[in-house]
């Protein structure tokens, strides 16, 4: 029992260590100026641009249902005008980044792990090395750069759509006074909340890209091995996002305190 526990603790520690080494190599390559901008642009289009539909639909419907539920509860207390700030704050601070993170983990994380995993088992990664190209420079750096740029923007887009949908449901469908809705939303939402969303988006982007690249680079031979890589990537990314979000909220509350 203790040995099993110890063994899994050890393998978890070595997993974290290997991901950290991958991050070190990537950051090292970026600092050495090994960024291939053409590949970065391609990845931004592939991972960022093409995730917009998923992310905006997620944002819109979450914002809509959230506004409706808040209205149902607050209406009893006669606090209709609080719907705006409640939706806005929770979307900026928690739901926007987390939902975007989960959706992107599913869409992009799986794709990264599957693509790199396939390259691994078909010797394409060895071929890169044999041709004198560092796989980290060619595969990880462009994806990491692209996602670190795209994720904060996707989070803002998600939150933006959620606010529009929330506004629509609250004021146009449920009859909340538009002026109060907007004014209260504006008063209680400040730059810190946006910084909060951007920071979380960035961190989740880092989590997604490194965990997924790691799964791809360590994919095992055969159909089963390649098949497992994306599954593992999505599961690990999603859990890491949810868990780290909790600690991030505490950390960010110190950096960007709630006034």
């Amino acid at each position: 029992m203790l040995t099993t526990l110890g063994r899994s603790a050890l393998s978890f520690a070595s997993y974290l260590g290997e991901v950290a080494l991958l991050m070190r190599d990537t950051v090292g390559a970026i600092l050495l100026g090994k960024i291939r901008w053409r590949l970065v642009m391609f990845q931004i289009a592939e991972m960022g641009f093409r995730s917009q539909l998923v992310v905006s639909v997620t944002g819109a419907f979450t914002g809509a249902v959230f506004a409706a539920q808040t209205y149902f509860q607050f209406h009893k207390l006669g606090m209709d005008s609080a719907v705006g700030p409640v939706v806005s704050l929770s979307m900026f601070r928690e739901l926007g980044p987390v939902l975007t993170g989960l959706m992107v983990a599913g869409r992009v994380g799986a794709a990264i792990a599957a693509e790199i995993g396939t390259m691994k088992v078909t010797e394409q990664i060895d071929a890169l090395r044999a041709l004198g190209v560092q796989p980290v420079d060619y595969l990880v750096v462009p994806r990491a750069t692209a996602l670190m740029i795209s994720m904060p923007l996707l989070v803002v887009e998600c939150v933006g759509f959620s606010l529009i949908a929330g506004w629509f449901v609250a004021t146009q469908v449920l009859g909340v006074q538009e002026a109060f809705f907007l004014e209260n939303m504006r008063r209680y939402t400040d730059g810190y909340d946006i910084a909060w969303a951007l920071s979380k988006g960035f961190v989740f982007g880092v989590i997604i890209v490194f965990l997924s690249c790691y799964e791809g680079l360590n994919a095992r031979e055969g159909a089963v091995g390649v098949g497992r890589a994306p599954t593992e990537a999505v599961v690990r990314c999603s859990l890491s996002i949810l868990i780290s979000n909790f600690f991030l909220s505490f950390g960010l509350n110190i950096i960007f305190p709630t006034v």
């Binding site: 078909t122 010797e123 394409q124 060895d126 071929a127 090395r129 044999a130 041709l131 004198g132 190209v133 560092q134």
Partner: peptide
């Protein structure tokens, strides 16, 4: 270390069993 190997590898070409073309 890997980065210094890159120059060596440019002197040596390798044909892989599966050809390993970039698909």
């Amino acid at each position: 270390p890997e980065r210094q190997l890159l120059d060596v590898r440019r002197k040596v070409g390798m044909l892989f069993q599966s050809a390993a073309l970039f698909d």
